[in-house]
């Protein structure tokens, strides 16, 4: 028992006091900035393995980006990645970045349903469904609740049953073989409920987008409440994305 206390003492305080202002170490690839520099645009678009870059004007879709960083290596004057991890939005369009702009990625308050803030503002229980996810997003979602990121402090938790959940978090490109289990899980969540897509695979299919082994019909049938880019999503991206969804509207809710 004493040893346990000693270890606890040696570990000190590990939690990140303010997850909305924390800095990520090193050269994390977060929100990219596209300059107006003139480059061979066709070569730039051709380079991207997931067709996230379009030209005329040059735009980069974070919902398709795998954050491999190759564009920034080969076209350093055109594209740079910042460490800004707040890259989620409830508006798919807002994930598309334009050249010459350096704007924070925002929520679209008009798209946030009234019941989300009213019912889930202080407590949001989520069921996670991996539908072809490669286990990296899944591990980052687990990390969101470790002693460092400690997402539970905001009343946001992952729960074991859809019956206990207020919504689902989907990772992975949604395989044909997971299409039915996903639909059944969603149906088992009591209404009102939300859907969060975590990671490039879930948002656009990522590198698997044109695979015949996928079935993404689920996404055409239901409204998506939040898109969280990343490959995988960083725990801070996830936590801030969900916090923004819950508190942006009204703006009078503060966290202790």
């Amino acid at each position: 028992m004493l040893n346990n206390f000693k270890i606890r003492w040696h570990q000190g305080s590990q939690y990140i006091p303010d997850v909305t202002k924390a800095k990520v170490p090193g050269i994390f690839r977060g929100r990219p900035i596209l300059s107006t520099a003139k480059v061979d645009e066709t070569a730039l678009a051709e380079l991207c393995p997931t067709h996230a870059i379009s030209v005329n004007p040059v735009r980069l879709d974070l919902g398709k980006c795998t954050f491999c960083g190759e564009c920034a290596v080969q076209f350093p004057k055109k594209i740079t990645f910042t460490t800004d991890y707040k890259i989620s939005s409830n508006d798919r369009e807002k994930l598309i970045l334009n050249e010459g702009e350096d704007l924070l990625i925002q929520m679209n308050p008009d798209l946030i349903r009234e019941e989300i803030r009213r019912l889930f503002g202080r407590s949001l229980k989520l069921r996670q469904v991996s539908a072809g996810g490669d286990n990296s997003c899944e591990m980052e979602l687990n990390a969101a609740n470790n002693v460092q990121f400690d997402m539970s402090r905001f009343g946001i938790d992952f729960v074991a049953s859809p019956r206990h959940a207020d919504g689902i978090v989907i990772t992975g490109p949604i395989t044909e073989n997971m299409a039915e289990p996903l639909e059944r899980c969603y149906n088992a969540v009591p209404s009102p409920k939300i859907i969060i897509l975590a990671g490039v695979d879930a948002i656009s299919g990522g590198i698997f987008a044109d695979s015949p082994a996928l079935n993404r019909e689920f996404l055409t049938k239901h409204t998506i409440d939040l898109y969280i880019p990343g490959n995988p999503v960083h725990p801070l991206t996830f936590i801030n994305g969900v916090l923004d969804l819950l508190r942006k509207r009204g703006g009078n809710f503060t966290y202790r």
């Binding site: 072809g132 073989n177 698997f208 695979s211 082994a213």
Partner: peptide, 10 residues
């Protein structure tokens, strides 16, 4: 089999 994304074909 639930995770099958067709990687080898891709």
């Amino acid at each position: 089999g639930y995770q099958h994304r067709g990687v080898e074909q891709l």
